[in-house]
Simulated assay, not measured.
Amino acid sequence: MSDPLTQVFAALADPTRRDLVARLTDGDATVGQLAAPYRVSVQAISKHLKVLEQAGLVSRSAESHRSPVHLEAEVFDLMTKWIERYQQRAEARYERLDAVLAEMDDEAAGHDPTREETA
């Protein structure tokens, strides 16, 4: 997976990794601190962090359980831009649908918006 966006979404597909990212939004933490609430080994959390690191979501200054893990928040800009692009497209489709439905309502009510009514 060489595409950065694919790597990010794949890394965040796992609920444990999403939870780790959420916890890192509060600040840097060591692997031991991150592993504490889970019923898995520190090594298992290290493997999750390695996936997040390969996706560019976190960074570590050293391969030690005592070194802090840092959330690389700018990676979320890539995701946000991708999501916003499709959100804008969806909103445009909904606006077109609203216009068609409004036109259908007018026609059903016997009102032709293209014809001027005289009083």
Rank of each mutant, 00 (worst) to 15 (best):
L101N: 00
D106L: 10
M1I: 14
R17E: 03
V51Q: 09
P15A: 12
E117F: 05
V75S: 07
S67P: 00
K81R: 14
I45Y: 01
G27P: 03
A109P: 04
A62K: 14
Q33F: 06
E84M: 06
V75W: 01
H65C: 04
K50R: 15
R17I: 03
S64C: 05
S67Q: 10
E74F: 07
A109E: 09
H48W: 01
Y94H: 08
E72M: 09
Q7N: 14
S46Y: 04
P68K: 06
V31C: 02
V42S: 07
Q7M: 15
A44H: 14
V100N: 09
V75R: 01
A29C: 02
S67W: 07
P68W: 03
L52D: 00
Q33R: 13
V8W: 01
V42A: 06
E95T: 02
L78Q: 13
V75M: 12
D3P: 04
S64L: 10
T25E: 13
L52M: 04
F76Y: 14
T6Y: 09
R96A: 04
L12R: 05
S2W: 13
H111V: 11
L78I: 14
Q7V: 05
L20A: 02
V21G: 00
R93F: 08
R60T: 11
F9H: 15
A29I: 01
E74R: 12
E91N: 05
V21N: 00
F76L: 11
H65P: 02
A62N: 12
S67C: 13
Q33Y: 09
L12H: 06
S61Y: 15
A73L: 11
L78M: 15
T6I: 07
V21F: 02
R23V: 03
R89V: 07
P4G: 15
P37V: 12
G56K: 06
F76H: 04
S46L: 03
S67R: 07
R89T: 03
V100S: 08
T80V: 06
L97Y: 03
A99T: 01
A44D: 08
V42N: 06
T80H: 13
V58S: 01
P113V: 02
L5V: 10
Q54A: 08
H48V: 01
L49T: 00
V51H: 06
S59P: 02
A108K: 04
D105P: 02
D19Y: 12
E116Y: 07
P37F: 14
L12A: 06
E72A: 09
A90P: 06
V40L: 10
E117H: 13
A102E: 02
E103L: 03
D3L: 10
L24P: 00
K81I: 11
D112F: 07
L12D: 05
D105K: 15
H65G: 04
E63Y: 07
G110V: 08
D28A: 11
D3K: 10
D77Y: 14
A109V: 08
H48C: 05
L24T: 00
Y94I: 10
R17S: 11
F9Q: 09
A35D: 02
R93M: 10
A11P: 02
G32E: 08
G110Q: 09
H65K: 10
P113G: 08
